[in-house]
Design a protein around this nucleic acid. Structure first.
Lengths: 190, 190
DNA sequence: ACCTGAACACCGTTCAAGT
DNA sequence: ACCTGAACACCGTTCAAGT
């Protein structure tokens, strides 16, 4: 086995923990299992993440960065293309592996989390909301800022719920699509 | 301390576990803490619920029964009254204590659950869906069964999502209300 | 029939000790 | 600077033993 630098251990831990947290949840994540998966001992993980709470915070920060990187290129695209991209981002998670959005997962597990991770949940929701406001504003040119904000927050909630319910049904992708179609038909997603 | 019958231990355990599971999640629930809370030792809990999985199943079954008992009297009420009752049922959970719907919580924690509890999640969603279909049908007299079903499932997802996001924001009741108002305004909840 | 102390292999975490 | 073995108090679970 090739020697790995400290950066690699931290990076490998974050990647493995991200998959595990989205698949089984933060509470179910074990430092010992995680360490074994990347080939170190659990105290080594504590060297990079003093407590599990620190790991939660780092995961949430990375998840926010990923979202921004995924959405940013679509900010100036036409409404239809941008909103479809947004929906696809939600779907891609559970495609196959039935993973949950990390922010949604951590919202469920919020009582076990440190303030840093809870702030991360808010940042995640706020970023999406701002992005959706800009995208929605292109279609609804006369809608007030407040109504744009409310619409954006409702869309975030509705998509998180669709994802959560699909997950509860074993990652039922067709069910997710039907819910999204109904959101569109009723006017929430348009 | 008065002697308690076996039925009381089981009942007390279920009640305490319900609050804990909705507040902190099923994974965070500890047999030892739960036992201490109701004044027995943890092996006693295992006598009534052989494994934690059995407790999960019993909780989900009870949660389904509660839902049916809460919704049943409103089945034949006018649409507006019935749907408001439904919304209130979602709100009453996190009012004050920021509890999550047990089915929503368990959907997040689904990989840790036995089949019995997973079936419970489906039963919970199906009961609501059927109830909503009947309620919606009173208003949308010409809507097809399929569209009623899709609308009902979308409503369940949207409300679970609103609850989850409010929970992530520390049980923000006003935010929940604004999301619900937007669902109504766009036509999803009408 | 119901309850418990003691033990098992787990967990997050700490810390002294190694390189 | 980075990693680890050993130990701490926890966890779900089992089981022999008590009433």
């Amino acid at each position: 086995m090739a020697k790995v630098s400290s950066f690699d251990v931290r990076e490998a831990a974050l990647q493995a923990a991200m998959v595990s947290a989205q698949t089984h949840g933060y509470n179910a994540l074990s430092f010992r299992d995680l360490a074994a998966e990347i080939g170190v001992k659990s105290p080594t993980l504590h060297y990079h993440f003093p407590t599990k709470a620190d790991l939660a915070e780092a995961l949430m920060e990375r998840y926010c960065d990923e979202l921004a990187r995924n959405l940013e290129p679509y900010t100036d695209k036409p409404f239809e293309e941008a909103i479809e991209r947004y929906i696809q981002l939600f779907k891609v998670g559970f495609d196959g592996s039935n993973k949950m959005c990390l922010a949604g997962m951590m919202s469920a597990e919020v009582t076990a989390l440190p303030d840093g991770a809870i702030n991360g949940i808010a940042r995640f929701a706020n970023y999406q909301t701002d992005w959706l406001k800009r995208v929605l504003a292109k279609k609804h040119t006369r809608m007030s800022k407040e109504r744009l904000e409310n619409r954006a927050r409702a869309i975030v909630s509705a998509l998180e719920g669709a994802m959560l319910m699909s997950r509860g049904h074993g990652g039922d992708e067709a069910a997710f699509d039907r819910v999204i179609d109904t959101y569109k038909a009723t006017g929430l997603l348009s």
